[in-house]
Design a protein around this nucleic acid. Structure first.
Lengths: 225, 225, 225, 225
DNA sequence: GATGAATGAGCCTTCATTCAT
DNA sequence: TATGAATGAAGGCTCATTCAT
């Protein structure tokens, strides 16, 4: 009923301006979110107008409100859409792994690093962090859906690594900062200040350098001597 | 330095209302910036109105424009004011140190960690990071005044540590992320998501845990076995 | 970029349009209310825009919000301003009168009738009645400030007239409708439907006809026979 | 005008969803008007959206426009529908009555009073009065269809009562206000300001009190002494 | 006949900025 | 220097109306 392809079969192109009524619906919310993500990322939430989002999504301002009850709901929708895959990605890697956590950490860091230039992946978390002040509910939601699931899993991973004697006796919770913080800082420096190593983001080298230090640092003490 | 009295020696003293501790005129811009910093930090730049800043600073909206030509200039002023001491702090610690960089790093990390709950210290950098999207010139300025001076110093510190054989052969530039990133992530988690270790920020424990891993990780390879 | 002084130093005819900054203040809120009253009366509350009110009052839309926090506050302000004089007028006439109520009623009806074509006097009550559905708080306010003071006074006036045997034994409360209702209906017919006796509102004749019937009707029963 | 029966006699009956008591197409306009009346009465014309009307009537917004060309046409339709019965009711009572008008007046007042709490009866006139400002054409129509027929009839009724010496020499036209005004005022006070006698609307007592005064007031002068 | 997606004009409100005093 | 009244350009949101299906 609403899925047929509508070809503009006019041979001469009479009045090709603004088909005006498009009738799509199914895909629309997602298209709006795509536009919003792009603009919010580029200009920030408050500096983006609903009209800009609408235009970028190819519809009128009023139509945005057909799908989202407010501008803020766009932000929320963005987060909601991104939340499940992200959390699952992390969880999927960690699962109920037992043993030396370093391979898992390597995989995790590698995964993050290799996705760091894909705007789709980090755009939402960056947005959340930036707009948390003006929209705490959204930060809260992100926390509950993503962090409160991923962080405990990482903590457990490290804790059992310590217990099993695979790595040095560290505080599992705090060590998460040592694992992911360098990546975050790399991202911030690159995106906020355009400070990158010569020759691009150099994510491989970053991950290598970081993991070298990290893994040596996590080596159990008795392994030395 | 900014306390000398210049009395408005008008003999008629009209408008004696609001005695309010007789402000010295030169102090005004600073007071405005204090107010701006507080509000920008708490509510974000766009959600703060010039009027709010004025009120908090104890003067009228119009008067703010006596000292700053625009709202954005407040942000710039904030950064400008914070820029010199911060850079100097970092530079002072590092100076032209030669030898094992770890003591210096320990000092630096300790300093940062112990100031992390002082809003005055990190308020401006956090602001810069958050508002960089809407005010790239300001991020640029921060970069030039602070980062472009502090980062090379740290790079040199690490580089000469590597050269002197005091630490493992790491990429000096990238290693900066490994040194400071965990602190940044700790801050973000605490401030944006209220995710803190039980019992507050636990900055000492964070620094300890981080430095333990970091320093073990930086240990020169030949030091082992 | 826009901070240097750019004087339009053209010596001839420098743009004398729109004095732009007027600086009045004291009288402004009242002027705004005057404009609002006129427009709300003529077009109704929802069909009047704040911009129209502003223009009629001779200032800009934004300035209206300097004096009134919202469009609805204009309505409330209108009522508040009108409320005290109206109530006092009625109360002043009735006071603690004792004796045959008919002279007082004649005075009251005469007063109302003679003010009925003065838009200033009845504009607000009419507004309140019309907009009560959309702004019940305002009807409530009007009731409390005006009706809850004037109606009991009238009830007392009639009650003591009955007790003193000056008028027939009627229900004082309900009789108020018999006294004022005809005036109200006359107003409604004239204003809503343009139904007036030939030759204008004919308020004198209305009052005469009404009072003749009313007073004869209130005549104590024993006065007959 | 667009209410004639047009049945969708398609034999295939596609879309059997929403069985919902199988609407007869001809009933639709009336159902829409019912919904509109209810909502316009409760929230006012401008505060009611076409969508709300549609939903309440159990169809879609677009379908409302199948039956009525605009929102205002709903108001007009409402009035048109109500107009004939109301006028006839009044006219039926009055007819070409000759003699003492008071029994007829008693019947009329009794009829009105006893229908006053039935929303169906007075909803439309109240609506017309309230929205007359924004829709004068509709007030005009109501006037022509109802008032211009009923009022002259009442005028004649009273006039011949005066001529026949059944009642005092009053102005027939103005006396209509004295007859119906108290009812109107009772309604306004109750509905707009929730001011009612203790124990509900007390319509019987109101009619009694009113008619007692009115009829005594209309008593021919020579009837006394 | 019905639907509901889509539109766009318009409204209320905010706020950075200006300027007469 | 200081004020705050005034402005005007948006921005978020609503809703009557249209039209492809």
């Amino acid at each position: 009923m609403k899925c047929e392809s509508q070809k503009t079969s006019s041979p001469i192109a009479e009045k090709p301006r603004k088909p005006k009524f498009r009738r799509r619906a199914e895909a629309r919310p997602d298209e709006v979110l795509d536009a919003a993500l792009e603009l919010f990322t580029k200009r920030g939430f408050s500096r983006t107008t609903v009209d800009q989002v609408a235009k970028r999504a190819g519809l009128s301002k009023g139509s945005v409100y057909l799908y989202f009850p407010s501008k803020k709901a766009l932000l929320a929708g963005l987060v909601r859409r991104a939340v499940v895959p992200v959390a699952n990605m992390a969880l999927g890697v960690i699962a109920d792994y037992r043993g030396d956590p370093r391979p898992v950490i390597r995989q995790l860091v590698g995964m993050l690093a290799s996705n760091m230039n894909d705007p789709k992946v980090f755009a939402v978390p960056k947005l959340v962090i930036r707009e948390a002040v003006g929209a705490p509910e959204i930060a809260q939601m992100y926390r509950e859906e993503v962090l409160d699931r991923a962080l405990p899993a990482m903590t457990r991973l490290i804790a059992q690594g310590v217990e099993g004697g695979h790595i040095r006796k560290v505080d599992p919770e705090l060590t998460i900062r040592s694992i992911l913080g360098p990546l975050m800082m790399h991202l911030v420096m690159a995106e906020v200040f355009s400070i990158k190593p010569e020759g691009g983001l150099a994510l491989d080298r970053l991950a290598d350098n970081h993991l070298t230090i990290l893994f040596a640092g996590l080596e159990p003490e008795e392994a030395r001597l």
